[in-house]
């Protein structure tokens, strides 16, 4: 009884090790499986996965209009104070005061790409882009203004 268990132990151990060796051996003899990206050389054809997160950007359409209402939901959602929104009051043609953004400040150096701001945004004004080449010589260049110069909120976005 003991001997039977012993032999089956050895058999199971050896067969599971052989299974592992088959897998790694398959990889060794099939160089097509290699997943390494030779990054600086293949910049033109670099393939990034769909959900890769590189930085936060604000979407602008061809009329230089964005969808940000300045509700500061993203600022509140951010766990480490990456986003700072400075608001102003626009005067609409009817003479009504309306809240709008003046500057959308984004501290790239603090951002952990956690995606919480994008999930918090009610109007899908910001999204994650895939650009990851952020190196600069001066730290102050990492503080970015996301809304373009002279842009305004798109009609009909509340």
């Amino acid at each position: 009884m003991f001997l039977k268990e012993y032999i089956s132990d050895v058999y199971r151990g050896v067969s599971s090790l052989l299974k592992g060796m088959r897998k790694t051996g398959y990889y060794f003899f099939h160089p097509k499986e290699i997943v390494t990206e030779q990054y600086p050389d293949n910049r033109a054809t670099l393939h990034l996965s769909e959900r890769f997160r590189g930085e936060v950007i604000m979407l602008h359409d061809e009329n230089n209009e964005h969808a940000c209402t300045g509700c500061t939901a993203c600022e509140l959602a951010c766990p480490n104070g990456t986003i700072k929104i400075i608001t102003k009051f626009d005067i609409s043609p009817e003479g009504k005061k309306k809240k709008a953004i003046d500057t959308f400040i984004y501290h790239l150096e603090l951002c952990t790409m956690c995606n919480l701001c994008i999930e918090a945004c009610p109007t899908n004004a910001i999204k994650m882009a895939q650009n990851f080449e952020h190196s600069v010589y001066d730290r102050s260049k990492l503080t970015k203004k996301l809304n373009h110069e002279g842009s305004k909120i798109r009609e009909g976005v509340e």
């Binding site: 790694t24 051996g25 990889y27 060794f28 160089p31 499986e33 290699i34 997943v35 390494t36 030779q38």
Partner: peptide
């Protein structure tokens, strides 16, 4: 090189 190819990498190049 063997380690790299077994782990689906390229190794020193």
């Amino acid at each position: 090189k063997v380690a790299a190819h077994i782990q689906i990498r390229l190794g020193p190049n």
